[in-house]
Design a protein around this nucleic acid. Sequence first.
DNA 1: AAGCTGACTATGG
DNA 2: GCCATAGCCAGCT
Length: 111
Amino acid sequence: MDRANFFKDVYEVVRQIPKGRATSYGAIAQYLGVKSGARMVGWAMNASFTENNYVPAHRVVNRNGLLTGKHHFKNPNEMANLLREEGIEVEGNQIKNFADCFWDPSVELAL
DNA sequence: AAGCTGACTATGG
DNA sequence: GCCATAGCCAGCT
């Protein structure tokens, strides 16, 4: 596939994450069909900052529900803050009820 | 052009 | 249970 399309697809998926939910890089990568493209998803998020379209990257965390990407935000606290406002309980840099608010595109979007 | 890096994940010790 | 290693793909220097 076109890598540009891959990035675009990642953005679309992330934007479709419902409020109060969160997903993992691996889940998105798997949904896109990329076996181990989790890193690319994260990289796409980094590129999303350059995109004109806003992407709720704060809803994307690693497989452990850890807010690994918070450090890349303008304000690292903003990521946890946004998640907390959406009803997601955040313990330090990790989502407490991650399993409860986990949103799997492969299931929810059910392509 | 070639090599490094990176917001990951899984496996092994 | 925590630290180290490997596999992965695309962008950036």
